[in-house]
Amino acid sequence: MNTSSLHLTLYTTAGCHLCDKALALLNPWLQQGVSLALVDIAEDELLMARYGVRIPVLAAPEGQELGWPFTAAELQDWLKSLPV
């Protein structure tokens, strides 16, 4: 798996402790070259409506999403399922 070609988005907001946990699970992947954009849903009405009660949500450019809760193993399986 070529992790340097993975570009993901984490939908989050300030003060979200679950988002901090998700980011901690992502950290090993970030060290392997996965790029991550953090998007604060509080700054966008549409994102707030879509993700307000679901964050953190990890999204791939192709539209695949992984919503919380997820484990390190589930994250790994999801990442491996993404087209590269």
Rank of each mutant, 00 (worst) to 15 (best):
V84N: 12
H7L: 09
V57W: 02
V34K: 03
N27R: 15
V84D: 13
V84H: 14
S4I: 07
S35T: 15
A73W: 04
L25D: 01
V34F: 04
L46Y: 08
R50D: 10
E43F: 06
R54H: 12
Q32C: 05
M1S: 14
L30M: 11
A24M: 11
G33R: 07
K80T: 12
A60G: 08
T9H: 02
A14L: 11
N2K: 11
T3L: 15
P28K: 09
A49F: 02
L47A: 07
E74T: 11
T13V: 07
C19H: 00
N27W: 06
D77E: 14
I55D: 00
Q64S: 14
A60D: 08
A73N: 10
L30N: 02
A72D: 10
Y51C: 02
L18T: 11
A59G: 07
L82S: 04
L36Q: 08
I55P: 00
D44R: 08
E74L: 12
W68A: 04
I41R: 00
V57Q: 03
Q76D: 15
L30D: 03
L66M: 09
R54S: 13
P83I: 09
P28N: 10
D40K: 01
L30K: 05
E74M: 13
L8M: 10
T9C: 08
K21C: 02
L25C: 04
A72F: 04
G52A: 09
S35A: 12
D44L: 05
L23K: 09
L18I: 04
Q76S: 14
A14Q: 14
D40H: 12
L47M: 11
N2A: 10
E43P: 00
D44K: 06
L58E: 04
Y11H: 13
P69F: 06
S81Y: 03
E74G: 13
Q64A: 15
L30I: 09
P61E: 14
L18N: 11
L79N: 01
L26W: 01
R50E: 15
E74D: 10
G63I: 05
L46N: 14
F70K: 03
A37M: 10
E65Q: 15
A72G: 05
P69W: 07
K21L: 14
L58P: 01
L23I: 03
Q64P: 00
